[in-house]
């Protein structure tokens, strides 16, 4: 059982941040979420978010030794031995300790209009999907597409890693713009597509991004928000050029 000295940022909305120290022992194969839980067992006033422990809910995101991670999928073996510093995400208001207020984030996600599921594009062995047969209650079969949850788990890591958000107010943020991009890719309705491009084109939209690509670097789900932002920029340029030539 490895022993670990853990510094955890403690804060309430009306107090200055400070660091509390915990000495914990966790199993060899523990993940960082187990370290946070071991601290909580010593002090149940420690506030942290978690639910699924397999990178699906997206609730547990924090910074470990300065880097944004989902602690539920980071093995202790991947961290430096002996000690660790755990802090809340940046660019979000702190509710308490490691818990940040995700309200504004989810309001933007809702505004972006991406449905969290999609028709699956290919099977696990990389073939295009044939429509599946869904069993109906009367025993008859309905042909329908397999579907998938989107890869983005809405954890907020990309917002915390974003230097544009740290420097400026009003930026829609990488996850939100990636969601706009996904919604834009998914629909064939030209009116909807135009409205989504308008959303990306607004002040605080894709043009405000400094292009640091920190978001894609930090994303635990390989969702590539920066790539999505660049793709939206290209689409907007095409639209503007097209408009110049009356197309």
């Amino acid at each position: 059982m490895p022993k670990l000295h853990v510094r955890v940022q403690r804060q309430r909305p009306d107090t200055q941040a400070r660091y509390d120290h915990f000495d914990v022992e966790v199993p060899d194969d523990a993940n960082v979420i187990d370290v946070i839980e071991a601290c909580w067992r010593q002090d149940q006033n420690l506030m942290y978010r978690h639910a699924c422990h397999h990178a699906s809910c997206g609730t547990c995101a924090v910074r470990v030794d300065g880097k944004e991670v989902l602690p539920c999928i980071v093995p202790l073996a991947a961290c430096k031995p002996g000690d660790m510093t755990i802090e809340p995400l940046r660019n979000f208001p702190v509710v308490g300790d490691l818990v940040v207020d995700v309200s504004a984030f989810f309001q933007r996600q809702a505004a972006a209009g991406m449905v969290i599921t999609r028709d699956a594009e290919e099977t696990i062995d990389g073939h295009p999907f044939e429509p599946s047969e869904l069993l109906q209650p009367d025993g008859k079969l309905e042909r329908r597409h397999y579907n998938r949850f989107e890869n983005c788990v809405e954890c907020g890591i990309c917002l915390s890693a974003c230097p544009t958000l740290s420097a400026t107010d009003g930026f829609f943020g990488p996850a939100g713009l990636a969601a706009v991009h996904r919604a834009w890719e998914k629909t064939t309705d030209e009116t909807e597509r135009a409205a989504l491009l308008d959303l990306a084109d607004r002040e605080g939209g894709v043009w405000q991004c400094h292009g640091a690509f920190e978001c894609s670097e930090a994303c635990p789900q390989d969702f590539d928000p920066a790539g999505a932002i660049m793709d939206l920029r290209r689409a907007l340029i095409r639209r503007k050029v097209g408009a110049l030539f009356g197309r």
Partner: peptide
């Protein structure tokens, strides 16, 4: 007492 559905529901089999 914690995050919504942080326990039995959160860590179920989906």
């Amino acid at each position: 007492r914690g995050e919504f559905s942080n326990a039995t529901t959160g860590r179920n089999h989906c």
